[in-house]
Design a protein around this nucleic acid. Structure first.
Length: 471
RNA sequence: GGUCCCAUCGUCUAGCGGUUAGGACGCCGGCCUCUCACGUCGGUAACACGGGUUCGAAUCCCGUUGGGACCA
């Protein structure tokens, strides 16, 4: 059996968006799953809207997602001669003909067709005129007037199109530029693409494309039309729904593997499994379990999955992902004794890395700001003594290991008769400025000896300074 | 307007003629606990509607409604 060859053909008219990323993912996964090839092709024939910035943005997004390609990138703008070559073949074999009808005349035909209740279409005026190329002529594809074109779609099943509904569409414009439906087929044939996985907004293009395959004597690829990704209001995902750019999710602190996991499960399933590593995705992805109905992009679910991936990761593996976000927030990764240790304390408490940075702030601060509400409740005069005892106990510990810290706290608990909560909360407030934080021992360990002792002493002094005189 | 696609909890989905319709996210409650989380246990909630086919339909067929896509 021939190896599977898939492709991803983005138009560089903007950043890579969520729907495009999922299409890329499915094609990539299928190629990797089958040990086939994945081709990247930039469809930049629209020279007005295509930009280099968009090309760069797409590369950047694919790099972040770690979706790599085996062939390409090809640029359609550099392949015009290939397309015209194929167009000539179509003309020479009688599958295409020149047409000199003016745009106005064609528009009139459409009006007439609509008026008679039919589809707007070209009426075939030049079809049998046997015209050769001449100035202002377009090249039209000669669509069969009768019969049906049947698309056997892997996900949608069999779809029947009446050929009479198909137009004699233009394949080369009067300015010599080939058209979309035509170049796609030429490229897919030339690049050996045998499996086309794309959004189901392309279903209506498919019968036209199938006709071109036939006219060119090429073998049809397997088609898999994947349902679209919609916004919460059930309309096509757009700017109105917030972030559409894939890299925006990177900047918000999502892990590429979590993002891919979410995208894969949106429209594809594997029994009840929700969490997939990249490797599992490759092992388990097939075209068989792609759903037929459109899916709504749900940020809450993405967040939950991201939290799972953050937890499943090692702190060290998170470092390269979180560092840029730290820096963006004015925090230097080196300003803490051990960044992985800090990350470890926060892993079970964050849905995104952005949240993690937010919660990590106190580790980096030179001096924590106390939450005023918490101060009222916790920094009471009675908190001074235990705090002081903790300082003394910690001063005697050379190495801040969790076990040693726990022993020190136990000793203070025994000496004062206080429960851990009564001691831990003042310590927590002293170290973090807040009432909520990671476990007190792991926090101290990650914060390090110097910062811990400095903050505890400052807190003790603060309480003394603000002590309410006995009345 | 024409053509095409789709339809299970709010959301993602399992189901492929016989199930108390399962899981996940979210939400609500219990437990755990040095706080917040994590974790764990439990709860909430769905087969769009109407006809058929069948001993039996979420599942097969037809229609209706609703949503979406493409062309204009």
């Amino acid at each position: 059996m021939d190896p599977i060859v898939t492709r991803f053909p983005p138009s560089p008219t903007g950043y890579l968006h969520v729907g495009g990323a999922r299409t890329a993912l499915f094609n990539w996964l299928y190629a990797r799953h089958t040990g086939g090839r994945f081709v990247l092709r930039i469809e930049d024939t629209d020279t007005v809207r295509s930009t280099q910035a968009s090309v760069d943005a797409i590369f950047e997004a694919l790099r972040w997602l770690q979706i790599d390609w085996d062939d390409g990138p090809y640029f359609q703008s550099r392949r015009t001669d290939v397309y015209l070559d194929y167009a000539r073949r179509l003309y020479e074999t009688g599958h295409a003909y020149y047409c000199t009808c003016s745009p106005e005349a064609v528009e009139a035909m459409r009006q007439r067709a609509v008026a008679s209740g039919a589809n707007p279409r070209y009426d075939g005026t030049c079809r049998e005129r046997g015209l050769g190329t001449e100035p202002g002529a377009v090249l039209r594809f000669r669509t069969p007037a009768s019969g049906t074109t049947v698309l056997d779609d892997v996900v949608k099943g069999s779809i029947v199109f009446q050929n009479s509904e198909l137009d004699d569409f233009v394949i080369v414009r009067s300015d010599g530029m080939p058209t979309y439906n035509f170049v796609v087929v030429v490229d897919d044939i030339a690049m050996g693409i045998n499996t086309v996985i794309r959004g189901d907004d392309h279903v209506m293009n498919t019968p036209k494309q199938m006709q071109i395959y036939r006219a060119l004597g090429a073998r049809l690829p397997v088609f898999a039309h994947v349902p679209m990704v919609l916004g919460p209001d059930r309309t096509r995902l757009s700017k109105r729904h917030g972030a559409m750019s894939v890299t925006a999710y990177r900047d918000m602190g999502y892990l590429p593997d979590a993002f891919l996991n979410y995208l894969a499960r949106l429209g594809w399933s594997c029994g009840d499994q929700e969490f997939f590593t990249r490797q599992e995705l490759i092992e388990k992805f097939t075209l068989d379990n792609i759903g037929r109905s459109a899916g709504i992009f749900d940020l809450a679910k993405l967040q939950a999955l991201n939290a799972d991936h953050i937890q499943a990761s090692t702190p060290e593996a998170l470092v390269p992902h979180i560092s840029p976000i730290l820096v963006r927030n004015g925090l230097a990764p080196g300003d803490v004794p051990s960044l992985p240790r800090v990350i470890r304390t926060l892993q079970p408490r964050c849905k995104t890395l952005e949240e993690m940075v937010e919660q990590a702030r106190f580790y980096f601060a030179d001096e924590v700001a106390y939450d005023p509400e918490a101060v009222k409740k916790i920094f009471k005069p009675t908190a001074f003594d235990p705090l002081q005892r903790i300082v003394e106990a910690l001063e005697r510990i050379p190495v801040f290991s969790e076990a040693a810290l726990e022993a020190a706290f136990s000793a203070v608990m025994a000496a004062t008769g206080l429960k851990l909560g009564k001691i831990a909360q003042p310590v927590r407030l002293a170290l973090t400025g807040r009432t909520a934080s990671p476990g007190i021992f792991e926090t101290i360990e990650a914060l390090g000896r110097d910062k811990t002792l400095a903050r505890l002493r400052r807190a003790a002094a603060w309480i003394q300074a603000h002590a309410v005189p006995d009345s």
